[in-house]
Amino acid sequence: MRGFKGGMFGGEFRMGRKFAAGDLQLVILALLAEQPRHGYELIKILEERSGGFYVPSPGVIYPALTYLEETGLAE
């Protein structure tokens, strides 16, 4: 099953990626605002805070961090 339509919000839910790129960047910025963190820490915190529902891969986290650094939003 690739995904399904409907659900509580009437949108489409797909297995796999759970955040759009911009949404993930905002979540990362919020976590970085709490304290400085490395990519691996961000992955673990997202997994923990989502109750295991969302476990981002390094291939998602590190490009987001690179983008935030290049745009001057994080260092």
Results as ranks from 00 to 15, higher is better:
Met1Ile: 11
Met1Gln: 07
Met1Ala: 13
Met1Tyr: 06
Met1Trp: 07
Arg2Ile: 14
Gly3Ile: 03
Gly3Met: 06
Phe4Glu: 07
Phe4Val: 09
Phe4Ser: 09
Lys5Gln: 15
Gly6Val: 07
Gly6Thr: 12
Gly6Ala: 11
Gly7Ser: 13
Gly7Thr: 12
Met8Thr: 15
Met8Ser: 15
Met8Gly: 11
Phe9Pro: 00
Phe9Lys: 10
Phe9Ile: 05
Gly10His: 09
Gly10Gln: 15
Gly11Pro: 01
Gly11Lys: 14
Glu12Asn: 02
Glu12Ala: 12
Phe13Val: 14
Met15Ile: 13
Met15Gly: 05
Met15Lys: 04
Gly16Pro: 03
Gly16Gln: 08
Arg17Cys: 03
Arg17Met: 08
Lys18Asn: 00
Lys18Ile: 06
Lys18Gln: 11
Phe19Val: 00
Ala20His: 07
Ala20Arg: 06
Ala21Ile: 09
Ala21Tyr: 05
Ala21Arg: 14
Gly22Arg: 06
Gly22Lys: 12
Gly22Met: 01
Asp23Ala: 14
Leu24Ile: 06
Gln25Lys: 15
Leu26Arg: 11
Leu26Ile: 04
Val27Ile: 15
Val27Phe: 02
Ile28Thr: 04
Leu29Tyr: 07
Leu29Lys: 15
Leu29Asn: 06
Leu29Ala: 13
Ala30Asn: 11
Ala30Arg: 14
Leu32Cys: 10
Leu32Phe: 02
Ala33Asp: 12
Ala33Gly: 08
Glu34His: 07
Gln35Ala: 14
Gln35Ser: 13
Arg37Ala: 13
Arg37Ser: 12
Arg37Tyr: 09
Arg37Asp: 11
Gly39Cys: 05
Gly39Trp: 05
Gly39Leu: 03
Tyr40Ser: 07
Tyr40Leu: 13
Tyr40Ala: 09
Tyr40Thr: 15
Tyr40Lys: 13
Tyr40Val: 13
Tyr40Arg: 14
Glu41Lys: 06
Glu41Thr: 10
Glu41Gly: 08
Leu42Thr: 05
Ile43Asp: 01
Lys44Met: 09
Lys44Ile: 01
Lys44Val: 03
Leu46Thr: 01
Leu46Pro: 03
Leu46Glu: 07
Glu47Val: 00
Glu47Gly: 04
Glu47Asp: 12
Glu48Trp: 06
Ser50Tyr: 05
Gly52Met: 09
Phe53Glu: 10
Phe53Arg: 13
Phe53Leu: 10
Tyr54His: 08
Tyr54Val: 15
Ser57Asp: 12
Pro58Asn: 04
Gly59Asn: 07
Gly59Ser: 05
Gly59Cys: 00
Gly59Asp: 05
Val60Lys: 04
Val60Leu: 08
Tyr62Val: 01
Tyr62His: 04
Pro63Ile: 03
Pro63Asp: 02
Ala64Pro: 02
Ala64Lys: 00
Leu65Gln: 02
Leu65Arg: 02
Leu65Ile: 03
Thr66Phe: 06
Thr66Gly: 01
Thr66Gln: 12
Tyr67Phe: 07
Leu68Lys: 02
Glu69Trp: 07
Glu69Met: 12
Glu70Thr: 07
Glu70Trp: 00
Thr71Arg: 11
Thr71Trp: 00
Gly72Lys: 06
Leu73Glu: 12
Leu73His: 08
Ala74Gln: 00
Ala74Thr: 09
Ala74Arg: 04
Glu75Cys: 04
Glu75Asp: 08
